[in-house]
Design a protein around this nucleic acid. Sequence first.
DNA 1: TAACACGGTTGACTTGGATCAAGCGAAGAC
DNA 2: GTCTTCGCTTGATCCAAGTCAACCGTGTTA
Lengths: 247, 247
Amino acid sequence: MPPQTAVQEVLLSVLKTACSNCNLRELCLPVGLTVDEMQRLDDLVSTRRRVKRGDHLYRAGQGFDSIYAVRSGFFKTDVLLEDGRDQVTGFQMAGELLGLDGISTEHHTCNAIALEDSEVCSIPFSRLEGLSREIHNLQHHFHKVMSREIVRDHGVMMLLGTMRAEERLAAFLLNLSQRFTSRGFSHSEFYLRMTREEIGSYLGLKLETVSRAFSRFQEEGFIAVQQKHIRILDIPGLKRLMNHQAK
Amino acid sequence: MPPQTAVQEVLLSVLKTACSNCNLRELCLPVGLTVDEMQRLDDLVSTRRRVKRGDHLYRAGQGFDSIYAVRSGFFKTDVLLEDGRDQVTGFQMAGELLGLDGISTEHHTCNAIALEDSEVCSIPFSRLEGLSREIHNLQHHFHKVMSREIVRDHGVMMLLGTMRAEERLAAFLLNLSQRFTSRGFSHSEFYLRMTREEIGSYLGLKLETVSRAFSRFQEEGFIAVQQKHIRILDIPGLKRLMNHQAK
DNA sequence: TAACACGGTTGACTTGGATCAAGCGAAGAC
DNA sequence: GTCTTCGCTTGATCCAAGTCAACCGTGTTA
């Protein structure tokens, strides 16, 4: 390796992907690592990848070798049946992991598509396993992340199995709001990155039903909608609506 | 430790829980381990626990410290909302793992209830993490199991989000049949361990709808039902029904 | 042996959300 | 600057599944 001046080293450390100086480190894979441990993770998370709006990060059936951490942007994942029906299984934002479905069969089982120009960090999975055999904290946190995904999926199953249309949408908005909050954005005002159809697919509803529910929420004064721009006016109201309506 | 004769050792090794001589080892956690590695796992999976029909293996909110492998019997897991609504999130049979939801928050997020007198192996989770830092195969297989759970959940989301009642039930029966087959049981004849209501809860349907769908399947000659006894007569027919009906 | 409880089936009716259809507004293409 | 497209909204109608209710069979209790 050629010798470098201190300045060069600093520049490089800023330019290259590095968990150590990523502002998402408290949300993402490095949670709970020491400075030292995080630097070992840096070596592994070396490649970033840009994904343009509408492009696939990976496709169902494709071989699996890496998981991805969203650095910026917004993704959806969907699965599709032979007969053409498809379902959005999730929306992922900065600091969230993509590709965990691929570990099981060494092939991805869903499509991951960018909903806006995005950037991800690639994490070669076998190297992650190697490192997590050495760093107990990393291992444990990774297990927590996978488990959290399972719990999240149970929540969606609950939503799809027992809630009515307006409850589903309320739960969806509250969830988005909460995730924006924990990323330092406004919890009450945001732009939806997905269409009504994608929301509907995720919630097991048709786009017309989603649209009507938005209109009703607006009439009731829970939110203000203008296309993709949402302002949440009454979080407790939405919560009440979500809980007190039987199917 | 007191000295033991060879006979005593053999007896003990049969009586105590041991993956090495468990007939589920090809389905369960020890998949892909060498004889040597499996013996190290034996030390860890030392306690069995009986759970009587109707009893909880664990409850939502309870602290998490172990995962469980079903040795015999049949379980359901369910989550419940404050307002009393609940949803069955899965049915688990021999060789399947329970409790993965608890890793994320160190507390279980669902209830696990035995649907018949059952027996599980307790696997202290921190010790499993320890061992999987040493045994690469174990680590990798465990990751696969968690990932498989995520993929399974996506399948259920698809089912709940896009399929109609009869398709859901067909998918459910085909899934059960396939799981019985891989355990060496008949793929075409089995007893349901759960009620119509529990099936309905899992599939996002009311028990009356489940009952009607069973009756229709019988009329059409796909299956023969008598209470909980099911004979599947036309697997391709069920598969067709599952795929070619638009919502 | 009666009676009770529980799970399941079936029928009649209701309804939430799907479907079909028309129209509108914003954003990108030319 | 106009045209086209795409996403969204809203109305009218329809239907799959939910609801309510009666009844049946089986297994358990008194």
